[in-house]
């Protein structure tokens, strides 16, 4: 029996863990000699080192968001910007390109991508009729800082653990977070509004150590590939269900949606995308445009 060591960048419970749990169950449920075992989570390997861990072979497989390993693969910053569904990326050669980049730069395969369509949202305590936040103090991370600046906000950096206190006392007027999980951070009670058009994807990549991969039999490799694809397909219903739950949770907590006209919403999303791609292409002038070409369509 081949036991493969898996690591996740999130604590192994709650809605975010669902896809990985499904993947592990899928592989272990198949009639093969492969077994996935979850050995690493943030209590054992920091999210910022999970990329190094899978690259160096401390773990065999990583469930990890692109923002955490840009030191190894700067192009991973683009993962959040893909708006072509993952099934199509497998058809049009995008997955092959991304996979090759990961092999070259970190010695790992890019096996698959979860999280398609989980959107980021801006959460605030101030209402606004238009998508401009001139002079608002917003908590920012490098992930969406350029977008916040494009919206006219004053971006303030702070740790995640201080957002609660900062929202409560008014140090910041808002923050961005995926649709999922603001309840886990206790932020429901200090948030009044959610800006409704979401932007980007809270994506999660599945990476696999290349040496370990090459040591597997072809049959084992096929099992892993097909399990990842099955999970990607399963994910769509799962996402819709959790999206709905999370919206309800926020509504129950009294969080109101801020909506704009269709045109304004489109501009808003385009502005986010442009700010994001500009950074990707600046950091990777050669591969960045190639990735954009295959993974992104400028149609709303």
């Amino acid at each position: 029996e081949t036991v493969l060591r898996v690591g996740t960048f999130l604590s192994p419970q709650g809605v975010w863990h669902g896809p990985l749990e499904h993947l592990i169950e899928t592989v272990n449920g198949k009639d093969t000699d492969l077994k996935l075992e979850l050995v690493a989570d943030p209590s054992s390997i920091s999210p910022f080192q999970l990329g190094d861990a899978v690259s160096g072979g401390v773990i065999d497989m990583a469930y990890l968001s692109g923002a955490f390993y840009t030191n190894l693969v700067p192009e991973a910053d683009a993962n959040k910007l893909f708006n072509v569904p993952v099934a199509e990326l497998r058809e049009n050669g995008a997955m092959n390109l991304i996979d090759q980049i990961h092999r070259d730069k970190m010695g790992a395969l890019f096996l698959g991508k979860m999280g398609d369509g989980i959107k980021y949202h801006i959460y605030t305590n101030r209402s606004s009729d238009e998508p401009r936040f001139e002079g608002w103090d917003m908590r920012g991370t490098p992930l969406y800082r350029p977008f916040m600046e494009a919206l006219g906000a004053n971006v303030i950096q702070m740790q995640g653990s201080e957002v609660y206190s900062a929202m409560e006392s008014g140090v910041v007027d808002g923050y961005a977070w995926p649709l999922w999980g603001i309840g886990d951070l206790g932020l429901l009670e200090v948030t009044d509004y959610r800006v409704e058009p979401g932007f980007y994807n809270a994506e999660i990549s599945v990476l696999f150590n290349e040496d370990k991969w090459n040591s597997l039999t072809e049959e084992q490799q096929d099992t892993l590939r097909s399990s990842v694809i099955e999970t990607e397909e399963w994910f769509i219903d799962y996402r819709n269900r959790v999206d709905e739950e999370q919206r309800r949770l926020q509504a129950d907590a009294g969080i109101e949606a801020i909506t704009f006209s269709e045109e304004q919403s489109q501009d808003y999303v385009r502005m986010a995308d442009e700010a994001g791609w500009a950074v990707v292409i600046e950091n990777s002038p050669e591969l960045g445009p190639q990735i954009k070409e295959l993974t992104y369509t400028d149609k709303q």
Binding site: M158, Q159, E162, S165, A166, S169, G170, V171
Partner: peptide, 9 residues
């Protein structure tokens, strides 16, 4: 902190 000028840090 309470006045909204600063985070605990």
């Amino acid at each position: 902190i309470l006045g909204g000028y600063a985070t605990p840090t």
